[in-house]
């Protein structure tokens, strides 16, 4: 609407009344016409013909609503007092650096090297347990190693016990790579996660995390790889995981911690000059 039209509207609206577009049936009649025109394709040409008539009538009527002048109705403004009131009138602002603010962020963390050391140590502990498992249950130290390699070598998952009990150089290299990579990554994960549970790091790293991980694998492997799943002795599997978790957890938890900047106000962390942080001019 042009500025002139708005001024015109303002002049023609009596006090206490508001002009709004008047109700009209023409859009509905036009829509009905379009629908009938379409419906005629699957019913009868007569339906389309009636639809065409309705479209023309609707279009003419619709044009009459807006040309040469828009048809508007006057609405009476009802006196209504809407007061803005808050249920909780008091609002709290959290100040940066205030005690308790962002308390969830650890003030001290472990260096990455602690996670790597934990992963290496846990990996050795797990490997030792895995070899003991192979010797005790299958009279071969290679059985468990070959099973681990079978996660990436599909032919090994279907192999017989004799094949799995024999030394296989390819499988050994594959198992070594898988074991080393996963141990280091999980060790790093421990290094990052354990500061979040500073009270019971060994309990979390040694028991909770291995059990969660084992449970997830137990539930998923029967769907993802049922052949491999049938080869796994889950009691020993959990024992190996706990062995890794306890050793890695102890190594990480005993490492020296690094203090973070999280206890400092944001302005100080950003190096911003701010009152209260920077010394007074006269004291410099």
């Amino acid at each position: 609407m042009s500025e002139g039209a708005i001024q015109s509207q303002a002049r023609r609206e009596p006090p206490g009344l508001i002009a709004a577009p008047a109700p009209t049936a023409w859009p509905m009649i036009t829509a009905l016409g379009v629908t009938m025109a379409f419906a005629g394709l699957v019913t009868s040409a007569v339906v389309s013909a009636v639809g065409a008539v309705l479209i023309i009538a609707g279009a003419v009527g619709w044009f009459g609503e807006v040309f040469p002048q828009e048809h508007r109705e006057l609405l009476e403004v009802e006196p209504a007092v809407v007061s803005a009131g808050a249920v909780r009138p008091a609002a709290a602002q959290v100040a940066v650096g205030e005690e308790g603010h962002r308390a969830i962020l650890p003030l001290e963390i472990y260096p990455y090297s602690a996670g790597i050391k934990g992963g290496v140590a846990g990996g050795f502990a797990m490997a030792a347990l895995a070899v003991i498992h192979g010797l005790l249950l299958h009279n071969s130290p290679w059985y468990t190693i070959n099973i681990l390699a079978a996660t990436a070598m599909a032919n090994l998952a279907n192999a017989n016990v004799a094949t799995l009990s024999a030394f296989n150089a390819h499988a050994f290299v594959m198992a070594l790579i898988i074991h080393a990579v996963v141990s280091l990554l999980v060790g790093l994960l421990y290094g990052v996660l354990l500061p979040i549970v500073p009270r019971n790091p060994i309990f979390f790293g040694g028991l909770v995390a291995p059990l969660l991980w084992s449970g997830l694998l137990f539930a998923a492997l029967r769907v993802i790889n049922p052949v491999l799943n049938a080869r796994i002795e889950w009691g020993w599997f959990v024992l190996c995981q706990i062995g890794f978790g306890v050793v890695a957890g102890v190594v990480v938890a005993r490492s020296e911690r690094i203090r973070t900047f999280q206890h400092l106000p944001f302005a100080m962390r950003m190096g911003i000059e701010a009152p209260g942080i920077m010394p007074r001019k006269e004291s410099r």
């Binding site: 042009s2 015109s8 023609r12 828009e70 048809h71 508007r72 109705e73 009476e76």
Partner: peptide, 11 residues
């Protein structure tokens, strides 16, 4: 030309 607007009182 100034645009005209028809106004109708509402029931």
């Amino acid at each position: 030309m100034e645009q005209e607007i028809a106004l109708t009182a509402v029931d």
